[in-house]
Design a protein around this nucleic acid. Structure first.
Length: 574
DNA sequence: GCCGTTTTCGGCCCGACTGTTTTCAGTCG
């Protein structure tokens, strides 16, 4: 099985960790980390690039040496240099490094003085009270390390889905806004960038009275533990287990602090570098030339100081946005208000919770011009999928409702199963009656890549095929994406004139940001759809729009940003 | 190890908090 980009990145990250522990030049270590990070954002499978002999050095941060290592990893599945390092440094030390409070220096010290070379060793040494005898360690450090190594061993680290973090984020922001003398509060970090999952929450407050804000923050009712607290910064762990970091700056620094706290780290470094080139220092307090403060009240001032247009938070990943901001080529990102309809919703005819009428009315209330009723077909048994006869009756109900509702166009649709051989789960004549044919794989998600890809390509060849729903079938934190040559699927979609869905269910968000970008670059059209199984889920559209923005999508790329007549023309084939 | 409208060497972002130390190293974001 060909190796995934994330696996290649993991290997490079481990090299970086072990080099770091070994005490290698920090910039060399960083080079490996940079390369790993960029590779995680590359949509094309590197194994395919290697197979076609493409120059990997075109990838930013990948030079001669790392390119050769990637080729080796792709061809052999391993990296001799890493094996060598593991022998030299110890293979378990990368795990030890990931324990909170343990950095390369401490790992190396404990390895040398106590022979710690695994999580279990570290736990044992800390529990036996051996750590605080080591120079540089004390009883407090020992207790902290013991707590974090035990936590690390007990549960697998998992990031929180964006939608799950949202209520917590909003509540804390509201709470802090009610503090006297607080001028502004924003949730920054990966939450603001609408990343599909967030590790912790970063909160920024503007106030001249930092200490008072800090005291109020740690007094928040959901706080379980105060991790650190200083004059301008504090960190807490909530009862939910989520960590929240808060920072307070004076209002004149709010923009620069917001920029700094929003990240990503790679984006910030790129912007600060531009500053250095112009003799400027950019930090969370502002933009400075020597002692002169040039700006920092707004993020726009920060960008302007280095000759950039304002960059929307969702784009700040150092994936080309800096160059685009310099040359005025930033995308005009899709917004929730530019969405004109929802092309994939369910009713209680299959596995939805609400009636046809309720779904349609709810869509109309959201100001949509159209909604497609896309219930399941018979192959999706667990979802109560409809066979051809039942589907006909269902379509008649849709037809009758149409005559009673004129505030919104109700589209006859179905979420048609793509069967194992790539055929579609409704008779052709029935497919032709539908306004929108949404097609999806619901079973045999474990087919080998070649077969899964062929299955989908063949389905796309069907003249009634309109939209490929949730292409990879992944469920964030639950189920990996199916093996699939998505690059090929995207190419085929463009050739066949079919659209790809960005499914807005918070656990799906399928396509990923990286694949949205790849689809856009290839000229594919995207439908952002909620796949709502109840009226409340129609509001999932905002999750889809967030992901779409991370994928650089503009209204012109998004099918349901168009009036139905236009979208319909684009869907009609031949 | 990467990179180049200051190019093939000499740079590489910047600051807060903690704990252990007596002026700062280590970690984190």
């Amino acid at each position: 099985m060909p190796i995934h980009n994330t696996e290649i990145a993991d290997i490079l990250d481990e090299v970086a960790d072990l080099l770091d522990i070994e005490g290698e030049n920090a910039f060399r270590v960083r080079a490996y980390r940079n390369a790993a990070r960029t590779i995680r954002g590359v949509a094309r499978p590197l194994h395919a690039m290697v197979a076609t002999g493409e120059d990997l050095r075109a990838i930013p941060g990948v030079g001669e040496h790392i390119a050769a290592k990637i080729v080796e990893i792709v061809n052999t599945g391993r990296l001799a240099a890493l094996t060598q390092l593991e022998k030299q440094v110890g293979s378990g030390l990368a795990d030890v490094l990931r324990v909170a409070g343990m950095g390369p220096k401490r790992v190396k010290t404990l390895h040398g003085k106590l022979g710690v070379s695994s999580l279990a060793d570290l736990e044992k040494a800390a529990a036996e009270g051996k750590l605080h005898h080591v120079p540089g360690f004390g009883v407090k450090t020992e207790a902290k390390v013991l707590a974090s190594v035990r936590e690390r061993m007990s549960r697998e680290e998992q990031r929180t889905r964006w939608a799950d973090a949202e209520p917590t984020a909003r509540a804390i922001a509201e709470y802090l806004r009610a503090t006297p003398d607080v001028a502004a509060v924003e949730i920054a970090g990966s939450f603001r960038r609408c990343k599909e999952t967030v590790g912790d929450l970063d909160v920024l407050a503007a106030s001249e009275r930092a200490a008072a804000v800090g005291r109020r923050f740690v007094a928040y009712e959901d706080v379980d533990e105060i991790l650190s607290q200083g004059p301008t910064r504090a960190s807490v762990r909530l009862r939910s287990g989520m960590q929240v970091d808060m920072r307070v700056v004076p209002p004149r620094s709010f923009g620069s602090a917001l920029h700094y706290l929003t990240g990503s780290k790679a984006h910030n470094i790129a912007v600060r570098k531009l500053g250095v080139e112009r003799g400027l220092k950019i930090n969370e307090y502002g933009v400075f030339r020597g002692r002169n403060r040039l700006g920092g009240r707004t993020e726009s001032e920060v960008y302007a100081s280095v000759g950039l247009h304002f960059v929307e938070p969702e784009l700040r990943e150092d994936r080309g946005e800096i160059e685009a901001a310099r040359t005025g080529r930033l995308p005009n990102l899709v917004t929730l208000s530019s969405i004109r309809g929802d092309l994939h919703v369910h009713t209680d005819a299959t596995d939805g919770h609400d009636t046809l009428e309720a779904m349609v009315r709810a869509a109309a209330e959201r100001g949509y011009e159209y909604v497609a009723i896309s219930d399941h077909t018979q192959n999706a048994r667990v979802a109560g999928g409809l066979d051809a006869r039942a589907m006909r009756r269902h379509l008649k109900r849709i037809e009758r409702l149409r005559s009673r509702v004129d505030s919104i166009t109700v589209l006859a649709s179905a979420e048609v199963d793509i069967l194992k051989d790539g055929s579609l789960d409704l008779p052709d004549e029935l497919l032709r009656e539908l306004d929108v044919v949404v097609c999806a794989v619901h079973d045999r998600l474990d087919l080998p890549a070649e077969k899964q890809t062929a299955r989908i390509l063949r389905a796309m060849d069907h003249p009634s095929f309109h939209i490929l729903a949730h292409a990879t079938g992944r469920l964030i934190n639950e189920r990996s994406p199916s093996e699939l040559d998505l690059e090929h699927v995207i190419r085929h979609a463009v050739e066949r004139g079919v659209a790809l869905e960005l499914n807005a269910q918070p656990a799906r968000l399928d396509l990923s940001d990286v694949h949205c970008r790849a689809a856009r670059d290839a000229g594919a059209r995207i439908a952002i759809s909620t796949d709502a199984h109840g009226v409340g889920q129609l509001d999932y559209m905002r999750y889809g729009v967030g992901q779409a923005r991370r994928g650089w999508l503009e209204p012109k790329d998004v099918l349901n940003c168009r009036p139905w007549k236009e979208a319909h023309k684009l869907l009609r084939r031949n």
